[in-house]
Design a protein around this nucleic acid. Sequence first.
DNA 1: CGGTGTAGTGCAATCGATTACATGCGGTTG
DNA 2: CAACCGCATGTAATCGATTGCACTACACCG
Lengths: 344, 344
Amino acid sequence: MSDMRKTPTIQDVARFAKVSTATVSRALSSPERVSLGTRDRVSEAIRVTGYTLNQAARSLRQRAAKTILVALPDIRNGFFSSILDAIEREATNRGYSVLVANLYLGHESARRLEGYLFSNRADGLLLLDGSLDPQALRVLTTAPHSFPMVVACEDIPNAGFHRVLTDNQVAAERATRHLIDLGHRRIGHLVGPENNVVARERNAGFVSALRQAGIEPNPQWLIRGNFEMQAGFAAAARFMTLSERPTAVFAANDESAIGFLSGLRQQGIECPRDISIVGFDDLEVAAHYRPALTTMRQPRETLGRLAAETLIDLLEDDGTTRSAMHIVLNCELIVRGSTAPLAQ
Amino acid sequence: MSDMRKTPTIQDVARFAKVSTATVSRALSSPERVSLGTRDRVSEAIRVTGYTLNQAARSLRQRAAKTILVALPDIRNGFFSSILDAIEREATNRGYSVLVANLYLGHESARRLEGYLFSNRADGLLLLDGSLDPQALRVLTTAPHSFPMVVACEDIPNAGFHRVLTDNQVAAERATRHLIDLGHRRIGHLVGPENNVVARERNAGFVSALRQAGIEPNPQWLIRGNFEMQAGFAAAARFMTLSERPTAVFAANDESAIGFLSGLRQQGIECPRDISIVGFDDLEVAAHYRPALTTMRQPRETLGRLAAETLIDLLEDDGTTRSAMHIVLNCELIVRGSTAPLAQ
DNA sequence: CGGTGTAGTGCAATCGATTACATGCGGTTG
DNA sequence: CAACCGCATGTAATCGATTGCACTACACCG
């Protein structure tokens, strides 16, 4: 407390080690360019003075913050928090810090992202939000000084972005086909948020699977949702008012599937006896829910890791403007107790 | 793409507006000190040049990164991700960015934190990890240049930290008493990780409630866990091997309670018919689980917001070294379907 | 022995914004 | 009218690390 000197700088270290600041700097960032003896003296000086690097100064000089920005729609969702976890791991391994930005409204978000990125706080963006206003995105792309960016989870075709995705549409088809294979013909879909790319792809996969099986989708059975548990719960009430009800439902994600199941139970509908449900994501709780949830597993850890890898590779590849990466990961159908053959 | 000039600086703006850089800087950070006419010219110049602030340069000069570091044990846990969400909101509102650091091992963590903080990447630390090695913490405290820091969730008494907590022990007592009130006498506890402060407090509350009711806790009924769902699931198997089994269990958190319930069901034990369970946290899924989980609700949003507020207040209070804050929030017992009166 | 190469180090400019201090100017006051 | 004040603005130092260039000393080669 009494020791209120300012924090030591590279100057202090230099003075103590009786070398120039240039040498100290080199001893830190490229030790092989410094003789063994000096290196030791510098280490000792650092120890004694308690020196730590000032990242702001380094960033200013090197024009790089060694930081990536992760923009996501909802940290609280287990799907995103897992991905964030994987990203953070990979980034830390490679010496990068992770800034998080939660984008509640698709609207003002773009301004926020701009502010973040163009201010040298972050060197690149990892965008996980499928709901972002397309016009907002255009700002990011067409900005006079565009910067490295990878979109993950959501597809934004034809924009030249690097992308790391899962095959949402194909996976949704497979999930739906699973229900068809069980004999279901009256199949509904608990939809994700409007204007969300991922939600639309899953919807498309759903429709496509039905059509392939010669079933015409019933628009009444597209039940509004928004990926959230509460919305799934509310959807159950609306479901009950349908004059004719599906015997199976493909939910756009696990959270809403769980809310939906919970709502249905309250209405006396039992799963899988009265209805079969497939979810999407394979959240950890899916296996422990009752009934255990049949779901499409997304390789979340892999997805997060690859996304981070791709972005950081991009940042460190100076100039070598490779053509846009496009990685697509497969999902895996996990069959559990929430789906059953159609009762005769 | 052909437009590869470097990003515009305050110099460019100044040149364009025909004023000095000082004036531009003032127009941005204290507009009232600049005449209306110049202010307009500067705005226009900023618009035309597409200028954005270089945060690194500002941080260097002002010795403040306008960034806080949030250190937590597991982002994937719904409890922490909710808190992180609240923190991020508050921080953003007040113009701060949020860096996240996941601390897997209680060990190397301290080094990492040190590195982060003493490098001017972040101005302060929000510590949410109850498992941090005490010795590691000492490093942070006794460092010659200690910095603002708030611990949340976990209590670290006598260290002079600012703290924002819930009354874990009292809440655990209340949760346990709820079981006692229902007539249960053989009550077990699904424990959190060893060396975790929060886990210990809840354990203490559990024991204290029993003692107050004249019940001597049975050491056999302290079931090992670590806050994770999987551990709860595994615990159920061990539970089955007990010669005499409790009729009720207080789980240290909802995640492990859910895993435990799932494991028990697999063993044919029905809740609440055969056993009553109380959890802790009130995760969103708790209300939608089956049975709906009786649990102690922690005011997560409030907790996150207050923690962020406290830290930022601290950062902006130059010098006014107030004595350490100590905020304690109350939890609320939410009674749902997982607890029932002891069957005679 | 002169020339060339190279390892090790220092000097000083540089990154971009902020800010203490200085300046000029119009207006007020005693 | 001189002294003074305050507003608006400019000048230039400053934050702390990096790095291009220059220099020295020594080794090696023909």
